[in-house]
């Protein structure tokens, strides 16, 4: 069987279409494992994984931790709030100290874009990027792609609209890379202040009208307004944003076809998406969360499979 082309998962930008297909195929098998009465396999029992979350996270950290435990890996957790970073330690020192405890893999989230890439040049362990600032969030893009693949059968030729705060979203960038590599057509939609200049150079469409974007797409991935990353005001008020870019029942009903609704969470109900849409049949938001564990198990399994067993 083929291997991943990379030792790390730093971003979708660095992996190939074959890698993505391999991850999807493996994730399908782990999804089956997760439906068993005993949802655990012994594959990674001799591997230790450190979850380093220099930035807060609930769902991604839980999803990774569960994936690691389902594979029988030993897990240590680290979060920024309880760290020595505040005492002035550098990132490399912090990570090297953790690696000195014989850790094989690092799952890392960091507020600075490129932090995992930087780290990969200085340490030996395999690194999985669990989100770096506004740069990439590869496992989220993989689970989004896998969820679409499960509903639609393939990504090739599909039209996917990513709607909302594109500027501050690492999910958007990773999703664009993943969908483009898999042959889907991608459109971003949002207020012009939240769409980066020259984003169309990635080979995607840009649309400022929500209705037109929804009429165009087969799948709509709706992103959260990342207020915590916004240093200035990009739109007049949340109420106005909800009126112009909020996806609600009324606008979906006025479109002739039924599109698949996705959201990476956490949802701001009533802002970018209303409850009747988020909880409707056409929404696969909870399937995304479920698939997240299987996809992360696949990534961990495939990266660990590249590692040699330490000889005595």
């Amino acid at each position: 069987m083929s291997k991943l082309s990379q030792k790390h998962l730093l971003g979708i930008k660095y992996i190939t279409k074959e890698d993505i297909n391999l991850i999807f195929e493996t994730a399908t098998h782990f999804k089956e494992v997760l439906s068993r009465p005993i949802k655990k396999v012994p594959t990674l029992r001799d591997i230790t994984i450190a979850n380093l979350f220099f930035e807060n996270s609930t769902r991604t950290r839980l999803s990774f931790e569960l994936a690691e435990k389902r594979l029988s890996a030993d897990v240590i957790n680290f979060s920024a709030s309880s760290s020595s970073l505040k005492k002035g330690e550098t990132l490399i020192d912090t990570v090297n100290n953790i690696l000195a405890m014989k850790v094989d893999m690092v799952v890392m989230r960091h507020a600075s874009p490129g932090a995992p890439v930087f780290l990969s040049k200085h340490i030996d362990a395999n690194i999985i990027n669990a989100g770096d600032g506004t740069h990439e969030h590869p496992t989220q893009a993989l689970l989004d792609g896998f969820s679409i693949y499960n509903v639609k059968g393939q990504l090739k030729g599909l039209r996917v609209a990513i709607i909302g705060d594109i500027m501050h979203s690492r999910v958007a960038l990773s999703n664009i890379f993943c969908l483009k590599k898999m042959g889907a057509e991608v459109m971003v939609c949002g207020p012009s202040t939240l769409i980066p200049n020259h984003i169309e150079s990635l080979g995607i469409k840009v649309e400022y009208n929500l209705r037109k974007a929804l009429e165009w797409c087969d799948v709509a991935n709706i992103l959260r307004i990342q207020l915590e990353r916004q240093d200035i005001q990009y739109f007049p008020s949340l109420r106005e944003y909800a009126q112009v870019y909020g996806v609600n029942r009324k606008i979906l009903d006025s479109i002739k076809k039924e599109i698949v609704i996705m959201h990476p969470g956490p949802i701001n109900r009533g802002v970018e998406i209303t409850s009747d849409v988020a909880d409707s049949k056409q929404s696969i938001i909870l399937e995304q969360v479920e698939n997240g564990v299987a996809v992360r198990m696949a990534v961990l399994y495939l990266l660990a499979g590249r590692m040699e067993v330490a000889s005595q």
């Binding site: 069987m1 083929s2 291997k3 195929e25 493996t26 098998h29 089956e32 494992v33 396999v41 012994p42 594959t43 399994y301 495939l302 660990a304 499979g305 590249r306 590692m307 040699e308 067993v309």
Partner: peptide
């Protein structure tokens, strides 16, 4: 029944085993 995830030669051969359907 697929045995891939329970095998004892994971990381001990050159290839990563492809799982089959259970």
């Amino acid at each position: 029944l697929d045995t891939t995830f329970h095998r004892d030669d994971f990381r001990r051969s050159d290839t990563i085993l492809t799982p089959s359907e259970t």
